[in-house]
Amino acid sequence: MSAAPLDDKTLGELREIAARYPEARSGLLPMLHLVQSVQGRITPEGVEACAAILDISPAEVNGVATFYTMYKKHGVGDYHVGVCTNTLCAVMGGDEIFSRLKQHLDIGNDEVAAQRQGDSRTVSLEHIECNAACDYAPVVMVNWEFMDNQTPESAVQVVEALRAGHDVSSTRGPKLCTWREAERVLAGFPDGRVDEGPTAGEASLAGLRIARERGWTAPDPAATPAVEAAQKAEGTDG
């Protein structure tokens, strides 16, 4: 995948990220996300640029870029598909989904599937760790958006729709953007998709629905004794 050069606009945005923090180096993680959004991966040029802006060595930047799993030294697809294979999702079917996708796409872990004739977009595949959506297991992430309650069949349908260039929406979020576009949001540049998708998915609402049915609420504040004043008088050592 070709890497566009880091133009003045991008260099300006990298400096802008560093300026959000009391100490510029704090910007490094989001800066590397921005490098990925422009160049599709962590490039030597991107490392040099971050190092120059932060006045640290390229080795220090590389040390960070190789520590965090979201930074890619090699390119990923337009749509990066992550299958959760941590214990709970694995048991609920994540292992089967991952194995089906490897077979279907004819690739191994952390590889990009070949672009077939007629495919307008590419996909890559990776097994991921717990993504904090266990109540929707088994979970697949596409460009770090939730695809909840997947099956091997639904996962194959998703990757095929993506390769064909069709619109696909997260089950609990917006229409999927490309990996590079998502990386730009992570760098702190919103893309206007915030109002897509629901407030919460069905599983998130499981307890609230029961509380509503049964009329259960948190206690009425007016019915609890006001003891703060008394406690305040006792002092605050501790």
Binding site: T199, A200, L205, L208, I210, A211, W216, T217, A218
Partner: peptide
């Protein structure tokens, strides 16, 4: 004695556009 479930933080999750100010 409080109710069995006590939605406080989850209480707005069934609101339309609960993320909006």
């Amino acid at each position: 004695m409080a109710d069995t479930l006590t939605p406080v933080l989850t209480d707005t999750w069934d609101a339309e556009q609960g993320w909006k100010l």
